[in-house]
Design a protein around this nucleic acid. Structure first.
Lengths: 146, 146
DNA sequence: GCTATTTATATTGTGCACAATTAAAATGTA
DNA sequence: TACATTTTAATTGTGCACAATATAAATAGC
């Protein structure tokens, strides 16, 4: 006989609600940059390495082309990125930063601090939570692929 | 000078990716019950208290009517719930379980165990993580409302 | 070199999320 | 009681997520 859990005892719900709460906190900050949260994540990846394929972006962000293709087209429309198929392999779409996209980095650099500030947690606590959550994701994902 | 974080060091991304990974793990289990993850959450709430208003559901799940109204209509279409406006206050929509909705509880009761199993964590560790994440959500949400 | 398979992206369709607006019923107050 | 305000859902529009499918280029085997 399985014990029946309260909504509040479901870790899945806590994580789902927390992720949305953070996204909601970031939204007004990102709106000033005319960005959505997933678009911000794409920029985070490109600020680390300014040219990547759609496939690489998808692997890093764990998003498929059904999500990324229209998202990247919107970002291209805003002149934040370029999308081009290299002559050497026309299956691939290379995504690279424009100057505007690169320049946004300066304006966005303070966004993570808002989570740090609101969390009331120390850098160590945040780091530890991050590692725990990443480890959980990895195990769950591994479980998925079995 | 702010330090620039790697994607993997962003707690916001870890939580976002983890939430989606869990949802992905649940999806095949929920598909057997013809449920989506948010629909499952609505049932979790109704299994605890079998009649609630849309407003109450929204407060518990942190979802607004723009999300809930169409979702609940789909659940009504599947005969899992009833939606009715009480004569005493016709602004309100009361949501209540049908027998089918109540009966799904038995089939869904094992779903949380799949997260427990795949996580490789003890019940204590899961409980502690749950508390940490809930506390973070609360602080972030409070920050939002200032 | 020719075909079969693989790889990378795009398309289509469904279902959330959420901001902004609308609408209708209930309540408060003069 | 009349009218302003508040409460509660519904609607509209945009942008993800993701499964399923399609398409075109590249590579592998023969």
């Amino acid at each position: 006989m399985e014990k029946f859990l309260n909504l509040q005892d479901h870790l899945c719900f806590s994580l789902y609600a927390c992720s949305r709460a953070i996204s909601r906190m970031y939204r007004p900050l990102l709106k000033k940059l005319d960005l959505t949260y997933p678009q911000y994540l794409v920029l985070l990846v490109l600020w680390e390495k300014e040219q990547q394929t759609v496939k690489e972006l998808g692997e890093l962000l764990d998003l498929d082309s059904g999500t990324l293709t229209p998202l990247l087209k919107r970002m291209e429309g805003k002149k934040l990125i370029r999308r081009e198929r290299p002559k050497t392999d026309e299956r691939v779409v290379m995504v690279s930063l424009t100057e505007e996209g690169e320049a946004l980095r300066e304006e966005a650099v303070c966004i993570p601090a808002s989570l740090f500030q609101s969390s009331g947690m120390s850098a160590e606590e945040i780091g530890a939570l991050n590692e725990t959550v990443k480890s959980l994701t990895e195990r769950v994902s591994r479980f998925n692929s079995i």
